[in-house]
Design a protein around this nucleic acid. Structure first.
Length: 439
RNA sequence: GCUGUGAUGGUGUAGCGGUUAGCACGGUAGGUUGUGGUCCUGCCAGCCCGGGUUCAAGUCCCGGUCACGGCCCCA
């Protein structure tokens, strides 16, 4: 037997129905915030990702040589391709740009629930504008999307890697080093809350480990806008500029108006995210019930355009939403609540079965076409069974209505339209307009 | 990268060294030549793959594959 490659999935019609409803919902929200859909290739040149994320990423790439010996790879994420597209195609488009995207990405890593080798990401990028207001537009869209699909109990955490870098370089840590700079290591320790690791790093770099105390206090500031006041004091004592704190404060109050009341939103300056190219605000969304793979969304402000020879005048801001993970969370929450509808709007539209019974199908084909043109979903019965079996089949396949056309009907130019949900049946004239009225 | 658990028709399962591998749902063909979401009958369809132990392996052992967990990681 031939089986699917590890970490991939098939989506049957029943599953796709839900996924399409979810995508449509996200698309609607993106458009409501002005983000226009784009699409980039499934594979790109290998350089695109090694330039952005360093050569170490290659081991997680589906990289290959094509028949002309080009180094290519399936895309592991979508931010870099979109930025490449902007530099290739939209250099002179008026800024700012609001772009959205959806598609599969590929990473070679251990597959488990919520982590697939082929996974789907929905994301947006706001390019060519920066500052608290631009960031608020992006973060509020993320919250808006999660609310719209009915996700509950999620936590938004907002941080700022710019501030973090200022602190760490202020202490004397270097931003250069292989394979990982001391600053990057420190940020990783902070993100994990690994204080021993941080102390060790400080001492090997000749920094007074007492500095960890301030950072620890900072990491414990985990709450609303009021935590920024306390942060100010600590940062002042460390001689770190406060401009970014003011920006964060402004960002939070804008979000307050644009997307009020997410289940939980916290500021924590130790949220670091893994990416080197983030320059300022970063944020992520977690759903606790997903366990280890609970991060469903992440993003922030970054600079990438310089990789493509464009000026990085302004940082861009965006996020990627883990399509599969949000769906898993929704499914788990729906099950817990005993709900059958997982994604709002996933219930299929009513559909109708045209059932010619002991008459030549050609006598109803024109009607089927007309009904479809009017906008009804109509399926022509192809099996020619007796009526009992056909109704049974129609019922199992989720049809709302069945149009029964038998020999007597053709003779009298009428037909029976039966509603399978109510069981009601009525006789109407055998033409598309009359039928359409009662479907 | 490390580690734990598991794998029987399409789905859910029984079988724990010797059975024609059982059951339910499902699919399909009928019972019914114009009315389903009751019922009855026939049929379809399975031991993940490769080695080994044994007179005999779905069952025990080793390896692989895949799935699900726990660490590591997660651009």
């Amino acid at each position: 037997m031939v089986q699917r490659p590890r970490g991939t999935r098939d989506f049957t019609p029943a599953v796709m129905n839900r996924r399409l409803a979810f995508e449509k919902l996200l698309e609607t929200k993106a458009l409501s915030h002005g983000f226009k859909r784009v699409q980039t290739p499934i594979f790109e040149t290998l350089d695109l990702f090694t330039a952005k994320s360093g050569p170490g990423v290659v081991k997680q790439l589906y990289a290959f040589q094509d028949k002309s010996d080009r180094s290519l790879t399936l895309r592991p994420e979508l931010t870099a391709p979109v930025m490449r597209m902007v530099s290739d195609e939209m250099r002179s488009s008026p800024k700012p740009l609001r772009l959205s995207y959806f598609g599969q990405c590929f990473r070679y890593e251990e597959s488990k629930k919520g982590r697939y080798r082929e996974f789907f990401q929905y994301g947006v990028e706001l390019i060519g504008a920066s500052g608290p207001l631009a960031e608020a537009e992006v973060v509020s869209l993320a919250i808006d999307m999660l609310d719209a699909c009915g996700l509950q109990d999620y936590e938004v955490r907002i941080g700022h890697v710019g501030i973090l870098r200022d602190i760490l370089t202020g202490l004397g840590l270097s931003q250069d080093g292989e394979p990982e700079s001391p600053v990057a290591s420190a940020m990783r320790f902070l993100d994990k809350g690994d204080w021993n690791g941080l102390s060790e790093l400080f001492s090997t770099n000749g920094i007074d480990t007492s500095a960890t105390q301030n950072l620890k206090t900072l990491s414990e500031l985990d709450g609303g806008i009021e935590t920024l006041e306390s942060a100010r004091e600590i940062l002042s004592s460390m001689n770190v500029a406060l401009d970014s704190v003011d920006d964060l404060s402004s960002l939070l109050s804008s979000i307050e108006s644009l997307a009020p009341n997410p289940p939980s939103m916290k500021v924590n300056l130790c949220v670091a995210r893994g990416l080197d190219y983030y320059t300022g605000m970063v944020f992520e969304v977690n759903v606790a019930e997903l366990g280890g793979e609970g991060q469903v969304l992440g993003g922030g402000s970054y600079k990438l355009l310089h990789l493509f020879g464009l000026e990085d005048l302004d940082p861009s801001c965006g996020f990627g939403l883990g399509f599969d993970r949000v769906l898993l969370a929704l499914e788990s929450q729906a099950e817990r609540a005993g709900r059958t509808e997982v994604v709002p709007g996933e219930t299929p539209e009513p559909s109708t079965l045209m059932l010619p019974f002991k008459v030549d199908a050609s006598s109803v084909l024109a009607i089927v076409k007309n009904l479809r043109d009017i906008g009804h979903n109509v399926e022509l019965d192809l099996r020619g069974k007796n009526i009992g079996k056909s109704l049974d089949w129609a019922s199992k396949n989720g049809f709302t209505n069945v149009i029964i056309v038998g020999p007597q009907d053709v003779e009298n130019q009428q037909c029976s339209v039966k509603n399978l949900i109510s069981g009601e049946q009525s006789v109407v004239a055998l033409n598309s307009d009359s039928i359409s009225e009662i479907l």
